[in-house]
């Protein structure tokens, strides 16, 4: 019971600290913006640890963070191989192929109005469908290896990326297009100098949505069959063995991979679309 009391105390202390920080004079500084969520996260972790220990929650239901950390550090080599299999081989290759194909298709669709009017509603429709459902079919076609995961990822990222890119290529004002006409600019010049740059914010939006989708696709596809490694495989087999420390470790890897890849794309976006209103100011 003392553990639970400590948990409560920790919560009160953490929250009180955050209240002071958030309402204090330094609340708008970069440091406070970073510290407050970190303190909150640490408080939650601490409470989790104390409550699990204090209330005697069995590890097969919810392991304490310390045990997860232990499993994680003890199995870094294994988790690294899972990471390579699922994230680098499955998700990344599918992501590159899917986004690349969608981008090229968007260029084509943009050239032909008929194609655009036909494919765009379809693309919007497809983007809302549970495409993960194709995983069993693709696993059947491409085998248990990473290729089937990449195929699922290709299908998952293709339509959101297509829809966003096409929308971006359309996002020029009539004045900007008229300007290019007054210069008697060729279609290629208009594309390179006007439409692609102004499409960039949309393209990055598609790329950002797609990073998360790619991970979901790669992991869920492994639930339908995989070789004896991969994050999805690790999660489903470790659950079977009731090794929840391992499950959580795999989830941590997936979460880190997701946040890191999203962060990378967002960083690239900041570098390339610094001029866009959304990057220049305001939240």
């Amino acid at each position: 019971m003392t553990h639970a009391a400590f948990a409560l105390l920790l919560w009160i202390a953490g929250w009180a600290l955050n209240v002071r920080l958030a309402n204090g004079p330094a609340s708008n500084t970069q440091a406070a913006r970073l510290a407050v969520p970190l303190i909150f996260g640490a408080t939650v972790l601490g409470m989790w640890e104390l409550l699990v220990r204090g209330l005697g929650v069995p590890a097969v239901i919810l392991p304490p963070p310390s045990q997860i950390a232990e499993t994680f550090t003890a199995n870094t080599a294994l988790l690294w191989r899972d990471f390579v299999q699922t994230i680098l081989k499955g998700a990344l290759s599918g992501y590159l192929i899917g986004c690349g194909a969608a981008f090229l298709t968007a260029l084509l669709v943009d050239r032909y109005d008929y194609l655009r009017r036909g494919l765009l509603p379809l693309g919007n429709f497809m983007a809302a469908l549970p495409i993960v459902g194709t995983a069993p079919i693709l696993v059947m076609w491409f085998g248990f290896g990473w290729q089937s995961k990449a195929a699922v990822v290709v299908l998952m990222v293709f339509f959101p990326m297509l829809v966003n890119t096409v929308a971006g290529l359309q996002d020029t004002s009539s004045m900007q297009r008229d300007l290019m006409r007054t210069y008697a600019a060729s279609t290629g010049q208009t594309l390179m100098k006007l439409r692609l740059p102004s499409a960039l914010p949309f393209v990055f939006n598609g790329l950002k949505i797609s990073t998360t989708l790619a991970l979901i696709g790669a992991i869920v596809a492994e639930f339908f069959g995989s070789p004896t490694l991969g994050l999805g495989f690790r999660i489903s087999t470790s659950i079977g063995q009731l090794d929840l420390g391992m499950v959580w470790s795999a989830i941590v890897v997936a979460a880190l991979a997701g946040t890191a890849s999203y962060g990378l794309v967002a960083l690239l976006e900041k570098r390339l679309t610094f001029w866009h209103a959304s990057q220049r100011g305001g939240p």
Binding site: M175, Q176, S198, W275
Partner: peptide
């Protein structure tokens, strides 16, 4: 009517 400069 507007400057229409490319922001990039």
């Amino acid at each position: 009517q507007a400057a229409g400069l490319y922001p990039w």
